[in-house]
Design a protein around this nucleic acid. Sequence first.
DNA 1: TCCCCATCTTTACATCGTAAAGATGGAATA
DNA 2: TATTCCATCTTTACGATGTAAAGATGGGGA
Lengths: 243, 243
Amino acid sequence: MAKTDTKSETARGARAPKRPTSVAASRPARRAAGAKTETPYHHGALREALLQAAERVLERDGLGGLTLRAVAREAGVSHAAPTHHFGDLTGLLSELAAVGFRQFNAAMASSCDAATTPLGRALARPKAYVAYAQAHPGMYGIMFRTERLDYSRPSLHEAAEASFAGLANAIGAMRQEQISGDALTMEQGAAIARAWSMVHGFTTLLLDGRLEDILGRLPEGTTAERLLESMLTAPISGKLPGP
Amino acid sequence: MAKTDTKSETARGARAPKRPTSVAASRPARRAAGAKTETPYHHGALREALLQAAERVLERDGLGGLTLRAVAREAGVSHAAPTHHFGDLTGLLSELAAVGFRQFNAAMASSCDAATTPLGRALARPKAYVAYAQAHPGMYGIMFRTERLDYSRPSLHEAAEASFAGLANAIGAMRQEQISGDALTMEQGAAIARAWSMVHGFTTLLLDGRLEDILGRLPEGTTAERLLESMLTAPISGKLPGP
DNA sequence: TCCCCATCTTTACATCGTAAAGATGGAATA
DNA sequence: TATTCCATCTTTACGATGTAAAGATGGGGA
């Protein structure tokens, strides 16, 4: 009945025929040299190791390949090990998304600091936004694949909240006004929604290949970044910006 | 080995203990009265019935519940029947997304016709866009869940292409210029990308619950539609529209 | 020193997608 | 009209996945 499980785990076992013995043999190196990334098998940093393994699997095999068992395989542990640390698949994905949001926030912050001119500063955020998504499409995909996430998890909630706060602050700075945390005017809300919708929409359409059509019809060699820039800076002709 | 399959299919069989006999018994009603939706089991409109069943399952159980076997169950056929009509899960999802795009295009067209004032006409499209997504969140989710779709399927490709053409034409009309099919100026591309990104981004953020934060901080009882309107019509303050 | 319990492994099972072979019956053909 | 053919649907089978539950293991406190 458990044929497939037995077989797949036997394959792993082939690398370490007698598990207890081999594990015990490799264990002494664990904290001897203070290298905490060394064989974090039994005690130690399995949780972090699993998150790193998950990120590797995600970048290598995409969202479709990111399964609990694949992550366990990548980390070299039994397929049920992740359950103990994350509860279920939603738990792992949520923690991984939190990692993504933290990376994302860091990228935004450092890119804003690097800007010099006013125009450069205004464009730095959206450019960094899209650049992160292009560099880590899998991560970005997870971060906004809401139906598989649990936003009630503190780590995810906080990281996503920080991301939103950064956006709101940037808008406030551009409008030369303070944006308070608890109340917004209609104009402020509209400005935030517009900025976020525009950049997030552009990013998802880009990652989904939906903009290829437009890019192919533009002057030879126009990049997505160039289109984004035009989209954000070009004067708005016609009666309304909406379609 | 096939215990679970046998059991679940046996449950279905309980409704029709001896399959050939019962099917033969219910078959006469099939085309007798010309009602083509009557027991389209063996020959007939199984393909359409499966698509309708899929839409039902999607609206009832969401994306997570939309499996080949669930659709087959909903349609009252064996779990392998869908495979013959759609090849695999990607095939079914793609055809269902095509149905969605056609519904979507129809909704857009009829809503544009109903508009009277210039402002109303400019807002009709984005409003209809968001309204469709809110009324059919599962469908909209599928239509833009690219990793599970096969855009090389003619029906999906055509329906999605028509949707894009409608958008481009609307933008062209607003800019009072003809948008040719094969080439775009940077301004035109930017206008299309801006409009599409804005509305698509707003929609996905809204469906993902990401705008709750903003809506909750706006004046009491502000709806998503009202926010969308402000977003599209409010003057842009600050140096740039970008975040 | 010994025992507890967090951590990890084993085992088990329902469900899913998919492949392949077997039935069934309408329609073309003789 | 009788027979064969083949598209359509069903059965059976298998590997993979998520998850629950019980069994090992070993570090750290009693």
